[in-house]
């Protein structure tokens, strides 16, 4: 903690720091009694400045907001703040170009698969991709790439690929969350003709990466096969 950071409380409360300074200050002030008290205080004062700028919003805005929240899932109340910050970091890593590329890949795969078996109850990979906290990760492996789309708030993961080898009789692919001290199962999937576009329901895990193995048909609690695909979030 440098003395200089104490002087940033006012500028922080007014969002007048650069992104780098903001990140540094957010790592500091919750642990600094003086800064925390000042930031809290200045935010209330800033809210009064906001009140003085009040203006009547366009009438259609409420309709649009209510329509959007009708299909927007709320965050879980139990997540601690640091995890919220982590979600924010994950989200900031999504590059629009990558999202577009994945969206195109998803459309291509869905186009292929749709005629096979996904005519009803189509897993909404594209809906997941549109989630505000969607994290897209491309996993590298010997047999090409697998794309993972994860929305922690939706508690869903999509697996998208179109050239996966068959896992073999009585075997399945298993997706793993890579966490700080090991892996956690994220779900099973079996491609059809090498193609997969499947949404898996998952629990909330603070994952740092992904892994994919081939496991016995019922899946495993811990990987028994080699990690065929991996990637960092």
């Amino acid at each position: 903690m440098t003395n200089d950071q104490h002087h940033l409380s006012g500028a922080y409360a007014l969002d007048a720091l650069t992104p780098e300074e903001r990140r540094a200050y957010e790592a500091h002030y919750p642990t600094c009694e003086l800064c925390l008290a000042e930031v809290n205080d200045y935010r209330e004062t800033a809210a009064e400045l906001a009140g003085a700028a009040a203006a009547t919003p366009p009438p259609q805005l409420k309709t649009n907001v209510m329509a959007e929240i009708a299909t927007t899932r709320q965050l879980l109340p139990t997540l601690a703040e640091p995890e919220v910050a982590n979600l924010a970091k994950r989200r900031s890593r999504i590059r629009p170009a990558l999202v577009m590329a994945v969206a195109a890949a998803v459309v291509a795969v869905l186009g292929t698969v749709a005629g096979l078996r996904l005519g009803q109850n189509q897993p909404s990979v594209d809906t997941l991709l549109a989630a505000p906290d969607a994290v897209v990760t491309n996993l590298e492996g010997d047999a090409g790439a697998v794309t993972i789309v994860w929305s922690p708030s939706s508690q869903q993961v999509a697996v998208v690929a179109n050239n996966l080898p068959d896992p073999g009789p009585n075997q399945t692919y298993e997706l793993w969350f890579v966490v700080g001290d090991g892996v956690v199962p994220a779900g099973l999937f079996i491609p059809e003709s090498g193609t997969i576009a499947q949404v898996l329901e998952v629990t909330d895990v603070d994952a740092v990466g992904w892994g994919i193995t081939i496991e016995p048909a019922e899946g495993s609690d811990q990987p028994t096969g080699d990690i065929l695909y991996r990637g960092s979030i």
Partner: peptide, 8 residues
Amino acid sequence: RDSIANVK
């Protein structure tokens, strides 16, 4: 943009 979700 940083997400506003990390507002403390």
